[in-house]
Design a protein around this nucleic acid. Structure first.
Lengths: 348, 348
DNA sequence: TTGTAGGCGTTATCAA
DNA sequence: TTGATAACGCCTACAA
């Protein structure tokens, strides 16, 4: 196995010094026309390509950004965030290393170590599994950003205005004439972490606020559980189970607000199984807008700007990297967008 | 900004030579007990962590595997493959670099270059966008594997037994009593590439074979179009449109075989919109088993072993890397699994 | 306009 | 059992 061409070999081939080749390749510095031609020919002939590894060892600034994804299956939300990160990073000349940590703090820790060993210039958590790991990363002195569900009050944080989104959804239902509206989601507090809880808390609080204003608050209409479990079908999941329970209530709700699309998908299945129709017999609203467009009927949902979250995250850390001094931690809150579709209508 | 600790600093701290530190860290070679202790203390004190970049420059064998994903949004299939690749690669001590090329040959080419510049040890295409790019990669002399839909007759190829899966689906429908069965998919030939066409061809041919055996082959029941388009809702997509057309046929089919779950999701929407019920009025079968469990009713589908495809891909290239000589190109065909669920029943 | 030389952090070879 | 030293491929003063 002959080794791949390096600058030296190109220089030899062209009959010049390595410096000259480097100058031609980098495009800066003066090089005579014909020397440049000779060098380019030699590059062709030898099949030379830069060695990013040697490059970043030398410059000792890597262009690697580590991206930690909490879970790509089953929730497509994180995949969309990843696209956003790639979008921006690529245009800025950075390489994104992605690791899927599947909700496991240990895997997250390992991924951080791998990234740091590769001298990742920055780390993006979409979203962190453990606050300790975030702190660990920050202690390593790389710019860090937490996306959507921060767990540590450190580093940059990008969140979504869940409250506004949920209130828009509730307003929509209220205006349609719904009064008994159920909530299916995760319990705020289940994360064992005040910060991380804020997403579920904001969504739930908005629901409570709205039904309280209507004077129809009812404990029986709240169904907390695991939002989704890995490798568990939605049919066995919390959305499905919770909805079955809601349907068997003496005073059944006329609408359901779910705290994500996977839960809403389960709700649609349970309603269908009961021989009822959406939205005629029951309105359903999801959150995240991940599966919404594939479901029947087209699901009304609150869209999170997943891709823009990713772009913003990349932008924040890259700004730090390009700046002289890192700058203070920033907190961004992006808008959610209410997407009315076919799963909501006036109650009969 | 003080630079991160390196071997030299650790050596200084411990009062030994770098070689000794290296020996302690690598665990091979004889080192006295107390020297080892001193070194470990120094590692702690300095916060040393290996520099994978320097490491692979020196050893000139990188542990990077480049993974090119054709599209992660909207098709979750590739995300599952990615998990499989990561699974296996991680246990073998390799780092996976992922690039999402969004169906663009140019982006794919760029990603290949980035990977090769990082001296990726191997490349996995899940699935290639352009045959030329695969050849380009192979010319660079790295082990290459094409997953699910090979385009070049080179390097390792891992496919799925689509024919068996589709035949199982058709048998299921036939046994339920269906005779007029429609096909919604991509046209074999639309890929402009014999090899890449084989997936759509196998699925379509199995359908044709089955309906021909039934004596119910009918051109009007075949709907070819774009399987899915990026950022286009399934409601406007081919599955939805094709199904509307099928429903308005004078002699309407009683069942639909779709060549992927996204198309099937669109079919479910169209049927629902027409006021019909699945499976009572129409049976629907999808392919890939990506969205199936989220849909209403639970979609009968043909499951592709996505994760195992990824694992197998990683296994093949890593075997090449660990072997002395690369070994011949292998062709693997994994089984698809028919998953009967709630979207199929006997016709009325 | 071109070339020489040193070093980034690690590993491997050879001495001590 | 430990240590000097030379690469790996690239970049960059500085010199010619």
């Amino acid at each position: 196995m002959t080794r791949p061409a390096n600058l030296k070999m190109v220089a030899q081939e062209a009959g010049v010094a390595v410096t000259t080749v480097a100058r031609v390749l980098s495009g800066k510095g003066y090089v005579a026309e014909d020397t440049r031609d000779r060098v380019m020919k030699a590059v062709e002939a030898t099949g030379y390509r830069v060695n990013s590894i040697a490059q970043s060892l030398k410059t000792s600034r890597s262009t690697i950004i580590g991206h930690l994804l909490r879970s790509t299956v089953p929730n497509p939300f994180f995949v969309k965030v990843a696209r956003g990160v790639e979008d921006y990073a690529k245009t800025m000349g950075y390489t994104v290393l992605t690791a899927n940590v599947q909700d496991a703090a240990e895997a997250e820790r390992q991924a951080i170590d791998t990234f740091l060993n590769w001298r990742a210039a920055a780390l993006i958590f979409s979203t962190p599994v453990s606050a300790e790991n975030v702190e660990y990363a920050i202690r390593a002195r790389v710019p860090v950003v937490q996306v959507e569900r921060p767990r540590a009050a450190l580093g940059h944080r990008i969140t979504v205005k869940n409250r506004d989104g949920a209130l828009a959804a509730m307003r929509h239902l209220t205006e349609l004439g719904h009064r008994r509206i159920a909530y299916v989601g995760e319990a705020p507090g289940s994360q064992q972490n005040d910060l991380a809880d804020y997403v579920e808390r904001e969504r739930f609080d908005a629901w409570r606020e709205a039904v309280t204003a209507l004077g129809t608050y009812d404990d029986a209409l709240v169904r907390f559980g695991m939002a989704y479990q890995i490798d568990l079908t939605s049919a066995q999941g919390h959305g499905y189970q919770a909805t079955r329970e809601l349907l068997s209530l003496p005073k059944r709700p006329t609408a359901i607000l779910a705290s994500n699309d996977i839960l809403a998908a389960g709700a649609l299945q349970a309603i269908h199984e009961a021989g009822l129709r959406v939205p005629d017999d029951m309105s359903v609203i999801g959150f995240d807008d991940t599966l919404a467009e594939y479901l029947t009927p087209l699901l009304t949902s609150v869209r999170l700007p997943a891709r823009r979250l990713g772009q913003a995250a990349a932008r924040l850390v890259i700004a730090d990297l390009e700046a002289e001094s890192p700058g203070p931690a920033q907190e961004l809150a992006l808008d959610a967008e209410f997407m009315p579709r076919l799963s909501t209508a006036a109650p009969r």
